[in-house]
Design a binder for these strands. Structure first.
Length: 881
RNA sequence: GGGAGCUUAGCUCAGCUGGUUCAGAGCACCUGCCUUACAAGCAGGGGGUCACUGGUUCGAAUCCAGUAGUUCCCA
């Protein structure tokens, strides 16, 4: 078999991905095996792959591939999300570029445009995931607007409505004046903004007295319906029960008292605008205040404002200040930092607004979801997110589920009359008609008389059903798929959607399956650049994942992502990491090339050093298997990879291969060759979940494979117990070899030059003679001699109290040797002293566990032995200097 | 304003229920090597009073309290 000297990822990756697809290795159907399932966090249907997706999906693929190789029936369900606001915004701007306004289109026409857009751009991201190697069952690809999923959403809405959990009402909502829709609390980002605090005085009605308030939003005074002071604030007690005139419009409003007011803030008096501030709204309800909405939906002032009508809210703020000044109401202005809410989608400043919306009652619904995370039925990884989760769930508010958009699931409420309550909720028009006839008592109602609610549902109202609806478990709760795969095993997602999505999936899970949706949630970090800036298009600091994979290979990028991805921590991504990943591929390829290039001589006996190395590397493999297993249990994927990385690079390549490697153009014995190929096979298995492509390529080249054979569906070896003593001894002789290499370096002796080694062991420190062949090979020695008397002209070192001497003739510098030994002696004496101090402390000996004391005892005698050896050597050297 | 977390080598992070004189990894760095698997490499090496202060303990990077800095979440 001819192995190309350069690894060519591009062709290899396409070749094996097609092969896996053709053989249906990604597909899963229920069977007798234990299931392992992940549902993908559905990306926006029209989105493109970014670094966050890369991280997230690499992790999912690692988990899925590993489970598959452990013999589980692994299923990774892919799909996309219709992303109401984001998609609609894109379609609107695309139409705008063509000179078409959304308002000129009918709902049907607009939705058609949106579908066209979806079909054109939808699924690009899924194609990109294939480049990464994602082993999703593509036959099961779902979209939240598919018929089955849409029906599930509507069915759930109707069900919750009938349970009395969904209601319609006027509430203060977060209004996005740009997207012209309500958004949920979770879709609002609060940012600190430098603004001004305006001090305005209101005249007390019928008097020449004034009361001064402070506000950041002077334009909203036009909607004021009260001024509020603290009941115990003596500065204002004389005003209790009086009225003030709102500046500019001279509307008379009451002065009310409430303990809500913070006496320290501003002047201690507060203007109340119930229509435009959530706190004022609450006060308004409490004190029965009128509520004057002065804004249009797009954020311009309406007729109710009476002045500046038609101006935008921010322009109005600028314009009203000189007007107030002129009218004598402006006392002063101060610079002020305050927090302002911005829309997650459009970045427009959110306007608190009273509006008629649909809500879902969350308190009772959420109770099981809180309980089952707190008791670890659903595990959050890392667990530190439990705190945040609890805080949110304990203060959960009703969920505003309606959006004033057209792209999405239309709310299945049908109005039959003019009144706000003249509606019915049903899964279809036919059912709605029947219900409406019943409710209205009018049996003559026709479908034309019914009018469906214009709003659509929040996107998360479909995503929260995802782990159930991808298996059609809402419409058919007892189907084979849902019974087999649900609850799923792991969910991999970003912490910023813990509440948007994860919490709500848990809620829906308990409500509709009476069961958690997944066993554990792996929360990844946010991908940032090396300066800790969030990767974003506008900053231009986010590499294009597709380009990155072209440059460094998919395996390289996967490894690069994983190297910097501890769970729950932000990860600072840098291209050098993918470079490291690519270098690793190169290393693997070359190691394989070396082994495959060996010629086997069946008549050759296995050299002793190779036999020992084979046994030793077996212990290393098993040890690594066990450690990797442990890391995966803790979801420490990064550390698991690092263990295998070091196993391959340091232990296998640098130690093992260097030991068994025959001299140039010399053949190798059969036993060593086969053992080595076996190790490569095992290493490819361990590495496959992380680097699927290169490992498959190599595995296929190890030997002739049968059709439809593949590494990705072969079983992972299981860890066995290993010879700990052999491993320890090998570590000792590694230290010996390194020490000899250090001497070569120091004395400028080339590796080619053959050296001698002399060993003196004492009764309580043993030289590992059986590993001697390995030392001879790797340190390039002629022989090792056991001695009792110290030789002349040799450099010495000590490993585990065994003395080693390398004769270097005239190159030995006795003075330098002496200095080195004296330094080591001083250190060891200091060490001994500290241990002795500890041991002479009665309280330590009494209180510390026996094991610890024993260990200290051992340290003490070891140190004493070493000191004796050192002192003898120093004594001898002193005679020479 | 309320809550949570973080602070260990130049960088990114490990260090479990306190026990090798004050400690590990990867990368980066330094020195020497183009030794025919790999210079995308090999061999060797240096580097940290574990943020600060105090306490508990025979013993603290590890537990407790406070201080400073920093990040995130919620309002």
């Amino acid at each position: 078999m001819n192995i190309p000297s350069k690894y060519d990822p591009a062709s290899v990756e396409d070749k094996w991905y097609s092969y896996w697809m053709e053989n249906g290795f990604f597909r899963s159907t229920p069977d007798q095996r234990e299931p392992y399932c992940i549902v993908i966090p559905p990306p926006n249907v029209t989105g493109v792959l970014h670094m966050g997706h890369m991280l997230n999906n690499t992790l999912q693929d690692v988990l899925i591939r590993r489970a598959r190789m452990q013999g589980k029936n692994a299923l990774w369900v892919p799909g996309t999300d219709h992303a109401s606001i984001a998609t609609e915004a894109r379609v609107v701007s695309k139409l705008a570029a063509e000179g078409i306004k959304k308002s000129d289109l009918s709902r049907e026409a607009f939705v058609k445009h949106a579908w066209d857009w979806t079909h054109k751009h939808g699924g690009i991201i899924l194609e990109q995931l294939k480049k990464l190697g994602a082993s999703c069952d593509w036959d099961r690809t779902c979209f939240t607007m598919d018929e089955a999923l849409s029906e599930s959403v509507i069915k759930v809405f109707v069900d919750l409505f009938n349970k009395g959990l969904i209601y319609r009402g006027v509430r203060m909502v977060n209004w996005d004046p740009q997207a012209l829709t309500a958004v949920s609390d979770e879709e609002v980002n609060h940012k600190e903004v430098a603004s001004k605090l305006y001090y305005l005085r209101y005249q007390v009605e019928g008097e020449e007295e004034f009361i001064t308030i402070a506000t950041t939003r002077p334009e909203t005074i036009l909607g004021d319906t009260a001024v509020c002071v603290h009941p115990e604030d003596e500065r204002f007690s004389k005003f209790h029960g009086k009225k003030v005139l709102v500046p500019l419009v001279n509307r008379s409003v009451p002065i009310i008292v409430d303990e809500y007011v913070d006496r320290e803030f501003g002047t201690g008096a507060l203007k109340i605008t119930p229509a435009h501030d959530i706190n004022d709204y609450e006060l308004g309800l409490k004190h029965n205040l009128e509520s004057i909405d002065i804004f249009n939906d797009d954020g311009t002032l309406n007729e109710a404002a009476r002045v500046l009508v038609g101006e935008d809210r921010f322009k109005a703020r600028k314009l009203i200040v000189p007007m107030l000044e002129e009218a004598g109401n402006l006392v002063k202005t101060e610079d002020y930092m305050n927090k302002v809410g911005f829309s997650e989608r459009t970045d427009a400043v959110i306007e608190p607004k009273l509006s008629l919306q649909w809500f879902l009652r969350m308190k009772d619904l959420g109770a099981p979801a809180l309980e089952h995370v707190m008791n670890d039925d659903v595990q959050l990884q890392p667990a530190k997110f439990k705190n945040t989760y609890r805080h949110w769930m304990e203060n959960v508010k009703d969920w505003c589920i309606s959006r004033q958009l057209w792209w999405g699931h239309r709310i299945p409420a049908y109005f039959y009359g003019e009144g706000p309550m003249d509606y019915v909720v049903a899964e279809s028009m036919e059912e709605a008609l029947e219900l409406a006839r019943e409710r209205s008592g009018n049996s003559q109602l026709k479908t034309e008389d019914l009018h469906q609610d214009e709003d659509v549902l929040d996107t998360w109202f479909s995503s929260w059903l995802w782990p159930i609806s991808v298996f059609d478990g809402i419409r058919h709760p007892d189907n084979e798929d849902i019974n087999y795969y649900y609850p799923t095993n792991d969910l991999v997602t970003a912490p910023e959607i813990l509440f948007f999505w994860v919490a709500r999936m848990i809620i829906a899970g308990y409500e509709y399956r009476n069961e958690k949706p997944f066993d554990s949630v792996y929360l990844t970090g946010i991908v940032r650049d090396h300066k800790r800036r969030k990767m974003s298009k506008s900053l231009g600091n986010s590499p294009d994942p597709i380009e990155l994979m072209k440059k460094y290979s998919a395996d390289g990028v996967r490894v690069g992502m994983l190297f910097c991805s501890p769970a729950g921590n932000d990860l600072l991504f840098d291209e050098s990491l993918t470079e490291q990943g690519r270098n690793f591929s190169n290393k693997i390829w070359n190691a394989f090339r070396l082994v495959k290039g060996w010629e086997v001589d069946p008549g050759l006996e296995q050299p002793a050093h190779s036999a020992e190395a084979v046994q030793w590397f077996e212990t290393q493999m098993n040890r690594a298997f066990i450690k990797v297993e442990d890391q995966f249990l803790k979801y420490r994927v990064s550390d698991a990879l690092m263990i295998i990385y070091k196993l391959f690079w340091d232990e296998f390549s640098s130690w093992y291969l260097e030991t068994v490697k025959p001299a140039y153009q010399k053949p190798i014995d059969r036993a060593s060759y086969e053992a080595t190929l076996g190790f490569i096979d095992g290493l490819m298995h361990m590495l496959h979940p992380f680097m699927p492509f290169i490992t498959e390529e190599i595995w296929q080249l190890i030997m002739e494979r049968k059709p439809a054979e593949s590494l990705m569906v072969s079983l992972m070896p299981t860890p066995e117990s290993y010879d700990k003593k052999l491993r320890r001894h090998f570590e000792e002789i590694k230290e010996v070899i390194t020490s000899i290499r250090f001497i070569r370096n120091e004395k400028n002796i080339a590796q080619k030059e053959v050296l001698k080694l002399m060993v003196r062991s004492s009764k309580d420190s043993k030289y590992r003679k059986y590993l001697e062949p390995v030392i001879i090979k790797l340190a390039n020695l002629s022989d090792v001699a056991l001695i009792t008397e110290e030789p002349e002209g040799a450099v010495s070192f000590i490993v585990k109290n065994v003395e080693y001497f390398v004769p270097v003739g005239s190159m030995v510098d006795a003075g330098e040797e002496l200095k080195k030994l004296e330094e080591e002696l001083a250190y060891t004496q200091g060490f001994l002293l500290s241990v002795q101090k500890k041991m002479s402390n009665e309280r330590f000996v009494q209180n510390a566990p026996a094991q610890v004391v024993e260990k200290e005892q051992q340290k003490m005698s070891d140190a004493e032995g070493k000191i004796a050896v050192l002192e003898a050597q120093i004594e001898k050297l002193k005679g020479q200097v």
